[in-house]
Design a binder for these strands. Structure first.
Lengths: 230, 230
DNA sequence: TACCACTGGAACGGAACGTTCCACTCCGCT
DNA sequence: AGCGGAGTGGAACGTTCCGTTCCAGTGGTA
């Protein structure tokens, strides 16, 4: 069955997804042709699988969300509260899930299923956080995790492995900072603040085909029930 | 002297610079028209002052560099080593200097003066770091500061003041993390890694007029003698 | 051999953007 | 009062870029 042409098709499907991850991780506004080029396929191979760019982006992001959930569920199995939290944070950073969710947010209109998954991801993260709360400095909130994960994802150097290495370094530093003494200054981030990129598409504007998604800093509030899955 | 038309010109000059800061901070690839719009001026007002987009970007970045130097020099006056370092880090984050330097790097070809300033900035930062080294956990290097500053700049929410507030929060956390016990994992970042965005323009390609500056992750090495000025 | 699912990539249409250009305004000087 | 020109807003232009479509080729499969 899976031989010859069919095998090539399957390989291409995976190559496209992997290439898309690499390319859009490096630049969320990259052209679709860059994905095809990186995957070593033509553009048709891409359009055979996805109706358009937005769908590819959405699939990619949804994958990241699912990976986040998987990491969180795995971490929740750890009996020690702090260890579970640490496994969770390190796992999310390691899997580079952030860029696949927050960084891509706003470049497509999320599906209902995505919103559900996002909520589940948020709940899982909050649960892990609550378990570890007793070992953390006072005043830290779950939304802080979203921000910190976002900050971790900003650590970036040439070379994927090296980037991962360095991020491990800084997660360690952040985890230590979370256990330090003293309260942090300033009001903690609101959930809506931490997830502002997940602005819901306004109901009157169902789905602009291709929203270039300028990453400005809107003062708007449209954020929907999407999760803090960073 | 400064009345009427001249006054308007002066006001516009400042408005343009401020608008450019805001706009390019939010999106380093924003169109130049967005700057004009934000400044409340026409495009001509912009082109009267700068020969082209690249020059505006360069000026902006150089300004940031100078501000970085000013912050570092002011911090160096503090007699207590750790306090000086803390004032320095907090000051750089507060002034949002990072995005004006690292984030804009690569979008223009730096001038000789900029390189000199960048080197000076790097030296100042290293000196501050060395003074505080005794109070920090083992294994931390100056290039870590560049990365951490970059991470701080990634904390971003709608609203400039709120963003500053939250960054203060996370600088505190990072500073505490820097004083924690234990060594950080992984090889520390090389200076070249921390400053990879400052890739020098190859000598054979003097100056493409407008380099869109995709922010990909090149494996190239072209980084010049530019500084680790976060 | 005939078919056809699948592919690579050229071609297309349109949007975005940097830059130029021009008609107009109004200050400052004669 | 009248003029010159610095300064301005914004339309227009040419180019580049990009998402999408289309078509001819290819090679398994029957």
């Amino acid at each position: 069955m899976t031989s010859g042409r069919a095998r090539e098709a399957a390989r291409n499907s995976e190559a496209i997804l992997a290439a898309a991850r690499d390319v859009f991780l490096a630049d969320s506004r990259a052209p679709i042709s860059a994905v095809a080029e990186r995957a070593g396929v033509g553009i048709s191979a891409l359009y055979r699988r996805y109706p358009g760019k937005e769908d590819l982006l959405r699939t990619l992001c949804h994958d990241g969300l699912r990976r986040f959930i998987a990491v969180a569920e795995r971490a929740a199995l750890e009996p020690d509260d702090w260890a579970a939290f640490e496994i969770f944070l390190r796992g999310v950073v390691e899997a580079d899930v952030h860029s696949l969710t927050v960084h891509l947010a706003g470049t497509f209109t999320p599906t209902a299923e995505m919103n559900a998954d996002a909520m589940r991801a948020s709940d899982l993260g909050d649960a892990l956080f609550d378990r570890a709360r007793g070992r953390m400095r006072a005043g830290v909130v779950p939304s802080d995790m979203t921000m910190l994960l976002e900050m971790c994802a900003a650590a970036r150097v040439p070379g994927a492995e090296r980037t991962t290495e360095l991020r491990r370094r800084y997660v360690t530093l952040l985890l230590d900072g979370l256990r330090a003494e003293g309260e942090l200054p300033g009001p903690p981030p609101e959930p809506a603040e931490a997830n502002w990129r997940w602005r819901a598409v306004s109901p009157t504007q169902p789905s602009r085909p291709t929203q270039p998604a300028r990453d400005a800093q809107p003062s708007a509030e449209g954020s929907a029930g999407a999760a803090g899955a960073g």
